[in-house]
Design a protein around this nucleic acid. Structure first.
Length: 271
DNA sequence: AGAGGTACCTGGCAGC
DNA sequence: TGCTGCCAGGTACCTC
């Protein structure tokens, strides 16, 4: 479910509700996520206040005075503020009960997500320390992609999904960005020109920014709860559209598999 | 070092 | 209706 725009939307959505609203109790119903939820969680969080929520890559960092809670939503995770007495559903794994009678509820059917305690220097945490630049940050541009890609034989689509190169480009937006930049997903990363990477970096920035402005495209349907409707048809040009005509040139959109993930592209617009 | 595959897990859907 | 197989938005870790 969550690509970077959804994580960003979650980040902005929960922060104002957590500030000045101390955590009174932690309930862990399912400890077995990607890594076990630490048993020390309750001790660390009880009576702490989250004073700031930050996003780094697709991790959420809930900063408290004595350390930081790291949350990753994996493929199917979500965080919602609900009344504390709302009945729990099957995959509601963790609740942070708040002083105002509500709770931050972590739900994750596939349990690929993570909830970890990071201590006082969270950016030094092993999961965060070696990540590439933020796509919406100042150090990300076409030059960076160009430099990083010299000599690399990996397909450019896999290259831009590598978190050591740039974080936050998930499977949907990888296809969409390459389409907008006019680059074939299977092309070797080292063979893409500087100009190509300048278009690609610009496309990544534009597409992620637009998705955030819309409130996180995929989160919308996830919250709605039913499959993957409306927004796909409206905002995505190639993803999930194999067999349909390209909106630019009319050629039939193709689907290929790269690294066990589906990739979509227009054979006429992308070279 | 880099490329590619595997693993984690549940649910929804198509096809029979 | 029920079964089977396949697919799904992520990413750390393994092997070659």
């Amino acid at each position: 479910m969550p690509e970077l725009p959804e994580v960003e939307t979650t980040c902005r959505g929960i922060e104002p509700h957590l500030q000045h609203n101390p955590i009174r109790k932690v309930i862990v119903r399912q400890r077995q996520l990607r890594w076990p939820v630490p048993s020390s969680l309750s001790r660390h969080l009880k009576d702490q206040t989250v004073h700031r929520v930050e996003r780094r890559a697709k991790y959420l960092l809930l900063h408290c005075d004595n350390g930081t809670l790291l949350i990753h939503l994996g493929m199917s995770g979500s965080l919602r503020l609900v009344e504390a007495d709302k009945p729990v559903a099957k995959h509601d794994h963790v609740d942070l009960l708040l002083a105002d009678g509500r709770c931050l509820r972590y739900t994750d059917p596939r349990r690929f997500g993570a909830i970890l305690w990071a201590g006082k220097n969270p950016h030094q945490h092993e999961l965060l320390a070696n990540l590439g630049p933020e796509p919406l940050g100042a150090s990300f541009n076409g030059g960076h992609l160009y430099e990083q890609s010299r000599g690399r034989k990996v397909a450019v689509k896999n290259f831009i999904m590598d978190a050591h190169v740039v974080v936050g480009v998930g499977n949907i937006y990888a296809s969409e960005s390459l389409y907008r930049a006019g680059i074939r997903p299977a092309k070797a990363a080292g063979k893409v020109s500087r100009k190509g990477y300048e278009r690609l970096a610009a496309a990544i920035v534009q597409i992620l920014s637009e998705a955030i402005a819309q409130g996180g495209t995929t989160l919308r349907d996830f919250v709605g709860g039913d499959g993957r409707p409306g927004y796909f048809a409206r905002y995505l040009h190639v993803y999930g559209r194999d067999g349909e005509p390209c909106s630019e040139c009319g050629a039939i959109i193709r689907k290929i598999v790269q690294g066990q993930r589906s990739t979509y592209y227009c054979p006429r617009c992308q070279h």
